[in-house]
């Protein structure tokens, strides 16, 4: 069972991640929330306590780095996968410093997303 919260200001990206996750390649995967900005994501996280989060970085209201900081403050162990464009490596690294576990570059393929989600929730080193 993997309960996923998708955070992205792009409706297209949210839908794409949702379709890929629900296509059946990840057994037991379940979407618990689709947030379009950081503030909404924090509220949904508190409400649903997901097992894993995919996080965009550039969003209105609250950006991804701040959002990661708040989510990690609630649950330091939750795996967060940053899904963003590689325009600013420094911001992405900053997101990882705040507690995200991995980074997936946009645009991504279905295979890349599935592999990244599996990796980010695995306990292997």
């Amino acid at each position: 069972m993997m309960r996923l919260l998708i955070v992205d200001d792009s409706n297209i990206i949210r839908s794409r991640i949702m379709r890929i996750v629900l296509a059946g390649t990840l057994p037991g995967a379940q979407i618990v929330g689709l947030a379009r900005d950081g503030a909404q994501a924090v509220m949904m996280f508190k409400a649903h306590q997901p097992d894993v989060v995919t996080m965009d970085l550039t969003m209105p209201n609250m950006d991804g780095v701040k959002c990661i900081e708040e989510i990690i403050a609630i649950n330091p162990d939750v795996p967060i996968l940053v899904v963003s464009a590689l325009a600013d490596k420094a911001t992405a690294i900053s997101a990882l410093r705040k507690g995200a576990r991995g980074f997936l570059n946009k645009p991504f393929t279905e295979k890349q997303l599935i592999a990244a989600l599996k990796e980010v929730i695995s306990n292997d080193e």
């Binding site: 996968l81 590689l86 490596k89 992405a92 690294i93 990882l96 576990r101 991995g102 980074f103 997936l104 570059n105 990244a116 990796e119 980010v120 695995s122």
Partner: peptide, 8 residues
């Protein structure tokens, strides 16, 4: 995860 940050 090392494999998920190489691109950064």
């Amino acid at each position: 995860k090392e494999s998920l940050v190489a691109s950064l």
